[in-house]
Nucleic acid binder design. Sequence first.
DNA 1: CCCCGTTGTCGAAGCGCTTCGACGCTCATC
DNA 2: GATGAGCGTCGAAGCGCTTCGACAACGGGG
Lengths: 334, 334
Amino acid sequence: MSGRAVTIAEVARHAGVAVSTVSYVLSGKRAISADTRRRVLDSVRTLGYHPNAGARALASRRANVIALVLPLRAGMHVPVLMQFATSVVTAARRYDHDVLLLTADEGPDGIRRAAASALVDGLVLMDVELHDTRVPLLRQLAEPSVLIGFPADTTGLTCVDLDFARAGALCVQHLAERGHREIALLGAPGVVYDRGTGFARRTREGFTEAVAEYGLTGVALPCEETFDEVARTVAELLERRPGLTGLVVHNEAATGHVLGALRQYGRRVPEDVAVVAICPDDIAERSSPPLTSVLVPAEDVGREAVRLLMDKLEGRTVPDGTLLTPRLTIRDST
Amino acid sequence: MSGRAVTIAEVARHAGVAVSTVSYVLSGKRAISADTRRRVLDSVRTLGYHPNAGARALASRRANVIALVLPLRAGMHVPVLMQFATSVVTAARRYDHDVLLLTADEGPDGIRRAAASALVDGLVLMDVELHDTRVPLLRQLAEPSVLIGFPADTTGLTCVDLDFARAGALCVQHLAERGHREIALLGAPGVVYDRGTGFARRTREGFTEAVAEYGLTGVALPCEETFDEVARTVAELLERRPGLTGLVVHNEAATGHVLGALRQYGRRVPEDVAVVAICPDDIAERSSPPLTSVLVPAEDVGREAVRLLMDKLEGRTVPDGTLLTPRLTIRDST
DNA sequence: CCCCGTTGTCGAAGCGCTTCGACGCTCATC
DNA sequence: GATGAGCGTCGAAGCGCTTCGACAACGGGG
């Protein structure tokens, strides 16, 4: 199994055809007779041929690799990030592409390096901020890119994300329909809003607008993820808003703590306080009681990002922004 | 910034030297006069030259890319996985290598493909099981690999991990020193043990042996990660073992729930029950009270894995197994 | 029956880089 | 003053693949 790798020349010799014929069989870029095709494929299989990625990239000017750029900042919920990552990898494989992992430590230089060296054909960036330093670079790059998340200025970019404004509004609507009049949004840590992370702000905007629209009263508070902070915030909320009966939680790491805090203060869910979370399904299902939630469809977002990138690589034009419609799953907390 | 990329030939022309000279300047594989070196480096900078990765890989038979194989199975704690992943990427960059992300969906085929196509020079595998199906393949591969985690049979392999047996024992020792006589281990979900994931079992073994060694009584229970299951397990434990005063938690996702459950049953931490966790520092610090814990040094393990892989790539011989020594940080829960 | 368009295959020219051998220097050595 | 050992540089030969143009062979239409 070790030793030198099989080359296309050996396959060609074994099948009794020219090297170029083997190439065309494999790429399907020219018509090949059924007979030849079969002979070649047989040889490929018996010899265990795998095209050399470097040679292929050099000759075709396509590496068949895309970069996935993960920032890994404070306040990001890692499991969600990981869901994105795996769905990107899976989707990329379906287009016969591999995924190179780039982290933020290297900053824009890493992106430039990977692109300029033709290591990758395109990029998917995650966790994009409203004023992301990487964005100007992307506009200059010859390589196409897709952002997961929306920066402030999307001109010349391709962005995908869950429609967080609608997600926030959807939670409000659900609570309104259940008759709740006074509600609150418990959000991400303050730093996440300050940094200008789009999805946190957009959720809050959706929440606020929907509160007005449905004629409710509502407050939105940021919240750290330690149990003590969550408990403090919840306590403050319950005290200042005795009429509060509905809570929207948009902070994956804090959802568990929120339920713990409510329990501690003697509030039953959903009898005393209804809770809707914006979080992955597994967190919602694993809670006690299982939470009514709006799923962050990481799977779909990742797949869509890759699809868009592949379209761009093929030279097709794609929409600037793609917002996925949120869907609410009703469980036992409302 | 877009348009065709700068080639080594253009750099050579610009600097007034031969292509090979530029190559030698960049690789340092032959002596070059200080003057020439400076001229070449200047040209590289002003032209913005980045060597074409494909061409380099083809000619040098080194892709300068390593694969990171992530399984992503049930019961794995994702943030820890992510810590590994980022530390591997960071470490690899220090050796001028990039990281290709491979997931388990493709199974061994993905590994074979990446290796056979010379896409990667070597592999780092994470979350290795005692009887991992990928292990036999690794032995056949020409490409070197390093495992994070220990399979049952490590012959011909290179493995790194935290010494979980000692970690388990260290927790017991700490509790024993604080005078606790009756303790318990609340572990990973049953499926993790059944699957034969090494670190879970080894922790349990270390726990059990240390319990005997220090003359304590102790039980080890697996535990699912939902709040209800944790609460049930804790309740059962408190009921069946009224004398229980010490708890070791080796289940990242459940640590928060454990504290919640203890609170719910009126047990104070650490006054009534002392808790030691095996988990990342951020989880321990974010809990209430902050937990005495043994850190899973993902950072160190990842870095070490890359170092070993680079050694193997250079043809150096490396030890079969590397176990990192656990360290206990005392906080407020014991 | 000739011409031409298709279809299937081949040979060769790169893609941009590394690396090997060669070669002209300069210096120290005898 | 010839000899040899570096040192610094160059030219050229690949690395394994894709792709372009060429060209037989074959039919169908005039």
